[in-house]
Every structure is written in C-alpha cells, then in structure tokens.
Simulated scan of single mutants.
Amino acid sequence: MASSNFIDYVKINCRSGKGGAGSRHFRRAKHTPLGGPDGGDGGRGGHIILRGNSQLWTLLHLKYTKHVIAEPGQGGSSSNCTGAQGKDVIIEVPLGTVAKDAETEEVRVEITEHGQEFVLTRGGRGGLGNLHFTTSTHQAPQHAQPGEPGIDEWVILELKVLADVGLVGFPNAGKSTLLSVVSAAKPAIADYPFTTITPNLGVVGYHDFQSFVIADIPGIIEGASEGKGLGIRFLRHIERNSILLFLIPADSEDVQHDYQILLSELEEYNPELLDKTRILAISKSDLMDKDMEKSIKKRLPKNVPHIFISAATMHNIDALKDMLWKALHEPVAQ
C-alpha cells in the first residue's frame, strides 16, 4: 500500500547550539605593552525555531527528519569583539501544529498564524569575556566564562487540521462523497468502512467569490475516545473546527441513537467540543420517501438544526451551504 502524503505526527530530536566561550585576551600594542583586558563575549548558540506556513498542510517534510541540530556560537576575540552567533534552524510547519515535550507531553506552543515564530529549543548563551571581570582591585582578570551548553531534547509535533467545518460521522456515512460534490477535493470513495484514513480538506465556493473550508475527518466508531478503531488519532482534528456537521445516513437503524453515540465520543475525548455549533445532516435522503422522512424527523434532537441531503441527486446541497455559511458568520451570543 502506498504511504500517505498526510502526516500529522512526528517526533524529532532538537539540539540547539552551544554558546561560544568568552575571550581572556589582553590588549597589547607597541606603546601599551601592559594594556588591560579586552576579551570579547562568546556568541549565542543557534536556536531551533518553529514558523507557521499557510502553504503547508502536512508534516510530511519532517517525516524522515529525526535530528535537528543548530550551530554553536563562536568564541569571543580581542578588542572586545563578540563571537558570531550560531545559525538558527527554522522549522516551517502548517497552521494548527502543536509542539509538546516528548517526556511530559506538556504543550509548548500552538502555531495558528502565518509567519508566527516560536523559539522551540534555545541556544546556549555565550560566555562573558575577561573585560567583564575587572574591578578596582583586580585589573588583570585571567578569567572568562565558557559558553552555556545547548539543549538536547525530544519534541512531538502534532497537527490539528484548521478548517471552518468538520464532518463528523461513522465510517461509510457519505462524508467523502459530500466533500467531493461541494468542493474540488477528490477523496477516496468506496462502499466500505474506513475508506478515509486521513483527513481531507475541501474549499467550498460560495456566492460572490467567497469560500469556506470543510474537513472530512476519518470515521468515528463507538469507543473511539478509548482508542478503538482509528481512535483519538483523528479526534484531535475536530478541535480546530468552528462548526461540527454531523452526517448520518438515512438508512441508519436509529438516527437519534447514532447521533448520541457520536456526541458521547466527542464528549469523552474533550467536553469543550460540545460547545461548538452543531448541524445535523441526514445523508442519502434519495433512498427514502416522504413518510420515512417524516418518521425520522420526529426522532431528531430538537435543539440542533437539521437538513435532509443527497450528494447523489444534489438535493438540498445548496441549502446546506447556506446553513453552514450563516452559522459561520452569525454573531456569537454574549
């Protein structure tokens, strides 16, 4: 099986540069044979820096990068000259990337804006030259500081897809089919579960050249929050979506029951997900008649807007776009 181009998790070893040593030099010239100390400071070691890049959508470029090493700083020299700083290493990452300490899993930063920079692993400070250690009673110090060592650490980078709308549903609910008809995205589509094993993004064109982004999240199964199926590996992508569009097929045995299972899995994973705006779409509505639609409507949750759609016949697809656009742009209640 060909490897996926979508990589949302990498673990890398970061080694920042060692600081340069301070100089113990004394000024010596033809007419000043016993000049005072003029040793310069050492240069700072190179940092390892994360930078947001809106043109990236995966961590694929870091898949085979196990070690990132920054340059050491240069030592100070005579005439109070500071050594050159070690060259920083810039790691460009897609928006939505979270950096964690690999040992404690403490979140260090979340990159959410293009051009945003964060010093992930700081380089060691350069040592002070002997000029800094002169006193009224000690005019010729022989001491200068060594540079601070760099930091050697393992860091986890996780990507949480940034999208306006996240599609939530069981495998084979029709999420990929819906994405393919409302956008130019071409996700894999087949009549069996887990066709989608990586998130797919699609840009949905709207009126007056406006648009919004939909993310097709791999299907959730009961127990996903405990690691079953694809587990929590893809649940984290839902955290970044402004709206959750629940998709349940019309041929489901119990739409209300399926909706509650999906809701429970999200709550188990992160209760804050329930604070997001929700819309319920009943897919594959071309498979039912009016009586079946009325029967299903009676059992739908009262507090969630719903719509019956069919990607095959394009029934209510434009109406769904209108619902999503309105939900994305209506003012948030205070």
Rank of each mutant, 00 (worst) to 15 (best):
Y9A: 00
C14A: 14
R15S: 13
G17Q: 06
G17P: 05
R24C: 12
A29I: 07
G36I: 10
G39T: 03
G40H: 01
D41C: 10
G46M: 04
L50W: 07
L50R: 01
G52T: 07
T58P: 02
T65C: 13
I69D: 05
P72F: 03
P72H: 10
G75M: 01
N80G: 01
N80L: 09
V89Q: 04
V89I: 15
E92N: 13
V93W: 03
A99K: 03
A102D: 12
T104R: 07
E113I: 11
G115P: 08
V119R: 08
G123R: 05
R125Q: 14
L131P: 01
H132E: 06
P149Y: 04
G150P: 04
I156T: 11
A163V: 06
A163P: 03
V165L: 07
A173R: 01
K175R: 13
K175L: 00
K175M: 00
L179T: 06
V181T: 13
P187Q: 12
A190Q: 12
Y192N: 11
V204S: 06
A215D: 00
I217R: 02
P218Y: 00
E222A: 13
G223H: 09
G227R: 12
L230R: 09
I232V: 15
S242F: 07
F246T: 05
F246K: 02
S252M: 05
D258H: 14
Q260G: 00
E265L: 01
E268M: 08
T277P: 01
L287R: 11
N303L: 08
V304F: 07
H306M: 10
I307V: 15
S310K: 10
N316I: 06
N316S: 11
W325D: 03
A327G: 09
A327Y: 07
